[in-house]
Design a protein around this nucleic acid. Sequence first.
DNA 1: AAAATACTTGACTAAAACACTTGGTTTTCT
DNA 2: AGAAAACCAAGTGTTTTAGTCAAGTATTTT
Lengths: 161, 161
Amino acid sequence: MRLTTKGRYAVTAMLDLAIHYDQGPITLADISARQEISLSYLEQLFSKLRKNELVNSARGPGGGYRLNRPADDVAVAEIIAAVDETVDATRCKHKGNCQHAERCLTHDLWCDLSDQIFDFLANISLGSLVKKQAVQDVARRQDKALPINGAEIGLKEHSVA
Amino acid sequence: MRLTTKGRYAVTAMLDLAIHYDQGPITLADISARQEISLSYLEQLFSKLRKNELVNSARGPGGGYRLNRPADDVAVAEIIAAVDETVDATRCKHKGNCQHAERCLTHDLWCDLSDQIFDFLANISLGSLVKKQAVQDVARRQDKALPINGAEIGLKEHSVA
DNA sequence: AAAATACTTGACTAAAACACTTGGTTTTCT
DNA sequence: AGAAAACCAAGTGTTTTAGTCAAGTATTTT
């Protein structure tokens, strides 16, 4: 089983997108600054997220990324799967050929555990996370620390009128 | 989060011990043959298992390892912890200092997941695994493939009378 | 006492995975 | 035109994994 910063970063970035959904396309530079994830690493992750149709993108100035679906319809398990992390605790990928052609002594145990973990993450949506008070608190703290883009976006919106 | 062959091997070896409990001390050579785990790697693992008082050992010919407690009282979670694997999915080890001194956006999510995994593994004992039909089937297959030591132990027990 | 067997310890290592970095290209807005 | 952003492909240093190897210590049998 493997659940490392790659999967965590992907979920964090997607949550950042969900939280700032009303601000239009969000640039990776913004996410990088708020969540402290290397920009080029984010690019790699978002390439996969886009291929899995979890986000859509707009190029050029004013561009960025947006959720492709309502936050309530995006499960954490999907995000982790999209960046190629598996939540599988078996060595045989559920195939049951862990010892020669047969299953090893603990095959079923790891299968059960994997299923348990997957179910947990499949039943948590980005939307449900956004609604949590603790998440809102952290988001507010992060926005306070980096109010650069709120101002810029405000300017841009006024310039239309 | 990290759950690799180290933890899996440790649990598998302990389960082997539980299954062959009635045969007296089990040598690592036997476990190595049955479970196909390198002998010196097993030595490393059992060193830790012994320090955590999950097994006890007997030296000299006829020696080996035994469970230190009834199989029903040994949780899988303990075994994994004993070989230094953590089931913790957070980057901050539950401390909440994932972003500077504060918690990151997804801190609570990983905490909840970690707790879920831990609970699952803490509530599964070696004893409950031994009782499973699938485990018994695999064990019988393994014993059939390597009947060497059953014979030796039989001889030794007769020589006492 | 000697030999056989079993456990202990610590150093070492090849390969893989991780977490990026570098250096671009392309598209779009102003 | 120029800047801002997404997009893409390789490369890279570090850490972890999953062991191996070598030498030694302890115990029991004969």
